[in-house]
């Protein structure tokens, strides 16, 4: 089932380091607003997307277990030990059990997927993930008929997670997908970035990536996967149901009650980076719109 979706972005699209360094030098030189505007990231449906640098992707994270600041995860997540790492698979499956991380991913094809990443806070990045399709994992553990949803849970390690001790959210962080969303070829279980093992602040050792949904759906550092027949609770929905729905598909027409979702700030463009319009389903409309046919997306947000 792997390779069901082909990147239309390849390594040819990645900005060569030399170009990006010279861009930084332009900025560092403060060579005027014009030069900086030119350095802003371009954007289109395909092709000319520029993946963010490894430094950007690993220095700017939301991982509230490690604190609410964008730099807190980088500063604090190093204390988390991901070896050994065990993932419980339970619910309506053929082969439930506690799987060691290596055991769970054994035999699954790791691919590179360069995806847009859109945070509900209206900023965005482009990330070259390494991972396998969730569908492959589900096939491996054997989904039984009757299962309608997949629920996920993040590790809770109060000793190394200051955000857990402070109770910013009702931890463990939980997320969920409808089974057809989970089986979609775009839905990835990521284990790395830029060919390197997943950094702790990005959700080591394994996390979900659902590129057409707001970033918070892409749950990090997963310790439990449950097949269920009921819509599972999700953390931000529990915290504020008016603001965060179960689906949380990227949708420029459905605003967050406190801010507009019509546009986004691409991270990494410097202080004069231009805001860019947000795309329906984060630019994956063609691939995923059929999942939601007949649904009112302003109600099922």
């Amino acid at each position: 089932m792997a390779k069901r979706w082909q990147n239309n972005l390849t390594w040819d699209d990645v900005t060569p380091k030399s170009a990006f360094m010279s861009r930084r030098q332009i900025m560092a030189g403060g060579a005027g607003a014009a030069a900086m505007l030119l350095a802003g990231r371009g954007r289109a449906e395909t092709g000319d997307l520029v993946p963010n640098s490894y430094e950007e992707i690993t220095a700017y994270n939301n991982f509230y277990e490690f604190g609410t600041g964008k730099e807190d995860p980088t500063a604090n997540a190093g204390a988390m030990s991901t070896e050994p790492w065990s993932i419980k698979v339970d619910g309506i499956v053929d082969k439930p059990g506690d799987y060691a991380f290596g055991e769970l991913i054994e035999g699954l094809t790791i691919e590179e997927r360069i995806y847009r990443f859109r945070c509900v806070e209206a900023w965005s990045m482009v990330v070259p993930w390494n991972g396998f399709e969730l569908a492959d994992l589900l096939a491996k553990v054997g989904v039984q008929s009757g299962a309608k949803y997949v629920a996920f849970e993040t590790a809770v390690l109060p000793d190394v997670m200051p955000g857990v001790r402070r109770g910013v959210l009702d931890f463990p962080y939980v997320e969920g997908l409808r089974l057809d969303e989970a089986m979609h070829p775009l839905t990835l279980m990521a284990t790395g970035i830029y060919g390197k093992p997943m950094p702790n602040q990005n959700g080591a050792p394994i996390r979900l990536v659902v590129p057409w949904k707001y970033g918070f759906k892409s749950i990090k550092s997963i310790v439990r996967i449950t097949l269920t027949d009921k819509e599972p609770p999700t953390s931000w929905n529990k915290a504020n149901a008016r603001e965060y729905g179960f689906y949380s598909n990227v949708n420029p027409e459905v605003n967050h009650p406190r801010w507009s979702q019509a546009s986004e700030r691409p991270i990494g463009g410097g202080i004069f980076a231009k805001r860019i319009p947000t795309l329906m389903f984060n630019g994956y409309e063609e691939e995923v719109a059929s999942l939601y046919e007949g649904m009112d997306l302003s109600k099922s947000f």
Binding site: M27, E55, E56, Y60, W123, G270, A273
Partner: peptide
Amino acid sequence: SGVTGGLGVDPVKEM
């Protein structure tokens, strides 16, 4: 700092 890249990857929000 914002112009010279000293404010991290999201200098606008930081400022």
